[in-house]
Simulated scan of single mutants.
Amino acid sequence: MMTRTLTVALACAALGLASHAALALESDASQPIEIAADQLDLDDNAGTAVYTGDVDMQQGSMRLTAARVEIERNAQGEVSTVTAHGSGSERAYLEQKPSPDEPVAKGWGDTVIYHAGERRVELIDRAQLHQGGDTFNGAYVEYFLDRRQVQARSDDDGEGDQRVRMTLTPRNDQ
């Protein structure tokens, strides 16, 4: 276990992850990224890392769990995309605190993609987002972290029941 943790820490350092926010509050950028997985495939030249097997990734207030997580960095060495995949009935899961005064936002999908530069999350297939007391479900849910905007779509092929569904909770501004 200690060797796996050390290997993951070295892989994060090689990818330049420790100095960049990945799915976290702006203030979490200085927090270390900790990843536990059964396997790591790192290609430093290509700027990719692929973690498989019960992946658990944390940085500050952010947590991501999935069967497989792929991390890509851009030419400047910054994290550009984090893609998480569920397995079978288990969906990928993401939670993060959008700002210090807001509750944790939680999202699920067969695939979860985080676009770091845009601070945008895509939840794909069996998608679900809990933001405050509100919930959004559908085949595809997109969440813009900084703007607090949500876009959702139903299943395009009409099979299954992945219509867009929302539950909006009244806000008490007292």
Rank of each mutant, 00 (worst) to 15 (best):
Ala24Lys: 02
Gly86Arg: 01
Gly86Phe: 00
Asp38Gln: 06
Arg119Gly: 10
Asp157Gly: 14
Ala36Gly: 10
Ala18Phe: 08
Val79Cys: 02
Thr5Ile: 07
Ala92Asn: 04
Arg126Gln: 13
Thr111Arg: 10
Ser99Arg: 08
Val82Ile: 14
Ala37Ile: 06
Asp110Glu: 07
Arg153Thr: 09
Gly109Asn: 01
Thr52Val: 11
Pro103Gln: 14
Gln128Ile: 05
Arg73Lys: 14
Ile33Val: 10
Asp155Ile: 14
Leu42Pro: 04
Gly77Arg: 14
Thr48Leu: 03
Thr167Phe: 10
Leu145Ala: 02
His85Val: 03
Ala105Gln: 00
Leu42Glu: 01
Leu17Glu: 01
Gln76Gly: 05
Glu102Val: 06
Leu123Thr: 00
His115Asp: 06
Thr48Asn: 02
Arg91Gln: 03
Asp28Thr: 01
Arg120Leu: 12
Ala105His: 01
Asp28Arg: 00
Gly109His: 08
Lys97Gln: 02
Phe144Cys: 05
Thr5Asn: 13
Glu90Thr: 13
Phe136His: 01
Arg153Gly: 14
Ser87His: 08
Pro103Gly: 03
Glu95Cys: 09
Gly133Ile: 08
Ala11Thr: 06
Asp101Trp: 15
Gln31Val: 12
Ile124Val: 06
Gly158Asp: 08
Ala18Gly: 13
Gly158Ala: 03
Arg148Trp: 12
Asp110Ser: 11
Gly77Val: 08
Asp101Pro: 07
Asp110Thr: 13
Asp161Glu: 15
Asn45Val: 05
Thr83Cys: 05
Gly60Phe: 02
Glu26Gln: 11
Asp161Arg: 10
Asp110Asn: 10
Met1Val: 08
Arg120Glu: 09
Glu26Cys: 15
Phe136Thr: 03
Gly138Asn: 07
Val50Phe: 02
Ala105Val: 05
Ser99His: 09
Ala67Ile: 09
Ala11Pro: 03
Gly132Ile: 04
Pro32Val: 01
Asp134Cys: 06
Asp38Tyr: 05
Val141Ile: 11
His130Trp: 05
Glu102Cys: 07
Ser80Trp: 03
Val164Gln: 02
Asp38Lys: 04
Thr65Lys: 04
Glu142Asn: 11
Leu64Tyr: 03
Trp108Glu: 05
Asp156Lys: 14
Asp125Thr: 13
Val79Asn: 02
Ala13Gln: 12
Arg68His: 07
Gly53Ser: 05
Asp156Gln: 13
Asp125Trp: 11
Phe144Asp: 02
Arg163Asn: 08
Ser27Ile: 10
Glu90Ile: 13
Ala11Asn: 06
Tyr140Gly: 05
Gly53Asn: 08
Ser89Thr: 15
Val150Cys: 07
Gln131Cys: 04
Met1Arg: 15
Gly138Lys: 01
Ser89Tyr: 15
Ala92Leu: 06
